[in-house]
Design a protein around this nucleic acid. Structure first.
Ligand SMILES: [Zn+2]
Ligand SMILES: [Zn+2]
Ligand SMILES: [Zn+2]
Ligand SMILES: [Zn+2]
Lengths: 135, 135
DNA sequence: AACACTGTGTAATAATATAACATTAATATA
DNA sequence: TATATTAATGTTATATTATTACACAGTGTT
């Protein structure tokens, strides 16, 4: 029930591009995606960007804004791309989606002094991953 | 004493570009900056990007990653671009730097389950500003 | 002087993203 | 079923954002 929003049938292009991103161990960039799916008949940047836009919109993937790259969502608690948090290693560029009930609760309830209420946020943490930290 | 890190003498190009950003009511994009400083002898994108990079590095400006735009820092508590938070109106695109001791304390101390410690973060909230919300 | 370091100027190019238009597929609803 | 509507596709061209490469100038140090 809780993940119902993600059970949408993808179109052909969306499925091809999602599969590629989903099986990638690292975030993928649009033109790298384009290069990889040309053998499947997707020839133009716009075809990639349209699929990416839709996949982001429905929460199947997220955009890592500081890297202009896309990662599949493996976090059942992140509702349709409305609340995202990532850790990014500044050496090896490994990106991990953060799944913390405390963090999302804190941010979802955060109100600034103007009383502006937010419908969405994106948080990117930077540092060294465990591996890179011990070298 | 607390803002010592920002008291650096800017070079000519850095000063020109900082002044432009600092007096702008909205985030500026690199090529819009370029257009605006051509009368001052800055002719090429690279001259703009070099100044922007340095200004970001020393914390005089911040990059709004989701908008590829730059805003001057007016927040004495944000130490050299290591910890930034913004609110962004999805209608009028107004951007405000958030200055909340509670938020920065929470995020600075946040540790994920891997125990990865972060040296830096960037947070962007999206919603409607007061003005746009009441229309 | 020799060196390192930082910044500048210029040209060329790479990388990221969108506009415009024609067509086709899927869905709704009358 | 017909038809209207919406969503997705294919293609070309173009706009926007950012970097590479190279030559040179200023400043401080040894
Ligand atoms: Zn997610
Ligand atoms: Zn790493
Ligand atoms: Zn700031
Ligand atoms: Zn607004």
């Amino acid at each position: 029930m809780s993940k119902m929003h993600k059970e949408r049938t993808l179109t052909k292009n969306q499925q091809i591009i999602f599969d590629l991103i989903d099986k990638s161990p690292e975030p993928l960039k649009a033109y790298s995606i384009l290069f990889n799916v040309q053998k499947k008949g997707i020839n133009a940047p716009l075809q990639v960007y349209r699929a990416l836009d839709k996949l982001v919109e429905i929460g199947k993937i997220h955009k890592i804004e500081s890297r202009n790259a896309f990662i599949a969502c493996h976090n059942s608690s992140c509702q349709v791309a409305k609340a995202t948090a990532f850790s990014i290693c500044e050496i090896c560029e490994k990106v991990t989606e953060i799944s913390s009930a405390g963090l999302s609760k804190y941010l979802a309830n955060f109100k600034d002094k103007d009383g502006m209420k937010y419908s969405k946020y994106n948080l990117e943490f930077f540092g060294l991953c465990k591996k890179c930290n011990t070298r």
